Simulated scan of single mutants.
Amino acid sequence: MMIEMYIKPTCPYCIDARALLTQKGVDIHEYDITKQPHLRDEMIKRANGRTTVPQIFIDGVHIGGCDDLFVLEHSGELDNKLTTQK
């Protein structure tokens, strides 16, 4: 399973999303768009036009941002996505 997250290091939503995913015990491949600004266009394309960070992908499937991740967590669907994608 591959978790990808486009981030800005000081973004509180990025920090919250990272904390939740770390708590779940998954490794996260982070793309810092402040250090690699060319990745911002890639992120926007992959995230269907979304421009905010974080943008999160599980095995290439766009999950959304931090709020979307927490909606999945509260509904119990996040664990399913993390276990079915393994």
Rank of each mutant, 00 (worst) to 15 (best):
M43W: 07
G64P: 09
Q36N: 13
M2I: 11
I58F: 01
L72R: 00
D41N: 13
D41C: 12
H74T: 02
K35I: 06
E42K: 14
G49N: 06
K81M: 14
Q55P: 04
D32V: 13
R40D: 10
C11S: 11
V53R: 00
N48E: 09
C66I: 00
D16R: 14
C11E: 09
L69S: 10
I28M: 04
R40I: 11
Q85H: 08
K86Q: 11
C66H: 01
H38F: 12
C11P: 06
H74Y: 12
K45Q: 10
Y13M: 02
D27V: 15
D59Q: 09
Y13G: 04
E30M: 11
G25C: 15
I28A: 08
G64T: 13
I3E: 01
P9A: 03
Y6T: 10
G25V: 13
H62L: 07
I7Y: 00
K86S: 11
P9D: 04
I7N: 01
D27H: 14
I28S: 06
L72N: 02
N48A: 09
E77D: 08
P54C: 07
D27N: 14
D27C: 12
M5N: 03
K8M: 06
G25E: 13
L20S: 01
G76P: 00
M43I: 07
H62G: 03
K8G: 03
I44G: 00
M5I: 07
R18M: 09
C66Y: 01
M1I: 07
I58H: 00
I7L: 11
Q23N: 15
P12F: 04
L21G: 03
F70M: 08
I44A: 03
T83V: 08
D79E: 07
Q36H: 14
I58M: 06
N48R: 09
T34S: 08
A19L: 07
M43D: 01
L20M: 04
V71I: 12
D68E: 05
K8T: 08
I56C: 11
T52R: 04
K24M: 10
L69T: 05
I44V: 11
D27I: 15
H62Q: 10
G49S: 10
T34K: 15
T10S: 09
G65F: 04
P37D: 08
D59R: 05
D16I: 02
T10C: 02
E42M: 10
V26R: 11
Y6V: 14
Y31T: 14
T83C: 09
T52M: 01
P12D: 04
G76E: 02
C66Q: 05
G64S: 08
L20W: 02
V71Q: 10
E30S: 10
G64N: 12
M2Y: 13
Q55S: 12
V71N: 06
H29V: 15
G60Y: 00
M43H: 03
I28C: 07
L82V: 06
I44M: 05
I63D: 00
T84F: 14
C66L: 00
T10W: 04
G65K: 01
F70K: 03
A17I: 02
T34R: 12
T52P: 02
D67A: 13
K81H: 11
G49V: 11
P54E: 00
Q36L: 15
E30Q: 12
V71L: 12
E30Y: 05
K35M: 09
T83N: 05
V26A: 07
L78V: 06
L20R: 02
P12N: 06
M5F: 02
L78C: 02
T10G: 08
D41M: 15
C66W: 01
I33K: 13
G49H: 12
C11G: 10
